[in-house]
């Protein structure tokens, strides 16, 4: 890469730091808000703990000690719904993506080929969710899935498969087919080739899809609200619940937002290098 001059370097870091400030400031603000007394929130802005306001830990105590049962339950529910659904999504999405990439399909009755099938799959994301909620509730009521983890996992699986199929199809398109063919020349079956060659090579793709579907499921609000009541309620619903008629309780919202961001951040950090690599090899194609 070309060498930058001093001015170029300064400019680069200025822009980076400016943007990092924009990104981080709201996080900082939520962090401090979770330690402020309500009056410090609702008058003029206070910036630095111990300097212009006296931090208190009451809000965290309330959430983690007094309300421990709820907080832990909601957190656990989110973990269950997001992780199980993203696992299923990775498996089914990759299989379908591989199929669409490596085979030719023709659904005679409809006259659909691979591209049409792929478009049909992504079109599952087109309808406004608010309309789907009611029929969903009916089936779920009938099948007794309301307020169950399984129900939520099933819903999120269905929501995230289309996206996974698209990413994985592009990913497999970019994997050279020669590798599999040479394996098959050596006498491996198609399945064996898939298991031995394709899967190990696809880890970055799996990680990317897993992360995206985890984030989407983790953050989803509307279906979590309508399909759960008590046992399976997730973090976003819990956060929104902090707006009561008593007013918006910024301090709890802030603390909960940070709690709910933490695991996603850790997973993101852990898999960070895979993500870029995954997308690098499987660059998305229109």
């Amino acid at each position: 890469m070309k060498k930058r001059g001093v001015i170029g370097t300064i400019a680069l870091y200025t822009v980076l730091i400016f943007w990092a400030f924009i990104v981080l400031f709201p996080f900082y603000w939520m962090f401090t808000t979770s330690f402020k007394r309500p009056l410090d929130v609702n008058r003029i802005p206070r910036y630095i703990p111990f300097v212009d306001f006296q931090p208190i830990t009451d809000h965290w105590q309330f959430l983690l000690v007094t309300q421990q049962e709820q907080t832990v339950r909601q957190f656990r529910n989110s973990v269950i719904a997001a992780s199980f659904s993203s696992m299923v999504v990775v498996v089914l999405g990759s299989m379908a993506g591989y199929g669409l990439s490596r085979f030719k399909y023709y659904w005679g009755r409809l006259g659909w080929r691979n591209d049409n099938i792929a478009f049909w799959i992504i079109s599952q994301r087109f309808l406004p969710p608010a309309v789907l909620v009611i029929p969903f509730l009916m089936i779920y009521g009938f099948l007794r899935l309301v307020d169950t983890h399984f129900g939520l996992i099933l819903a999120y699986t269905a929501f995230n498969i289309p996206f996974a199929v698209w990413i994985m199809r592009d990913f497999f398109d970019s994997l050279p087919i020669d590798l599999e063919e040479s394996a098959r020349v050596d006498g491996a079956t198609r399945t064996q080739a898939f298991l031995r060659i394709v899967i190990p090579l696809s880890t970055p793709g799996f990680v990317t899809v897993a992360l995206f579907s985890f984030v989407f499921a983790w953050n989803e609000y509307l279906f979590a609200l309508m399909l759960t009541n008590f046992n399976a309620i997730t973090m976003p619903v819990y956060i929104a619940g902090q707006q009561s008629t008593r007013g918006t309780e910024w301090w709890y919202i802030s603390a909960l937002a940070l709690i709910s961001v933490a695991p996603v951040m850790l997973i993101g950090l852990f898999f960070q290098r895979y993500i870029t690599r995954g997308l690098t090899t499987g660059a998305l194609r229109a």
């Binding site: 980076l16 990104v23 981080l24 709201p26 984030v215 953050n219 976003p236 937002a257 950090l269 960070q272």
Partner: peptide, 15 residues
């Protein structure tokens, strides 16, 4: 920076 710049996406839209 790459990690920092990813952070906002991790927050639920409600928050």
């Amino acid at each position: 920076f790459r990690v920092i710049f990813l952070l906002p996406m991790m927050m639920t839209p409600v928050a």
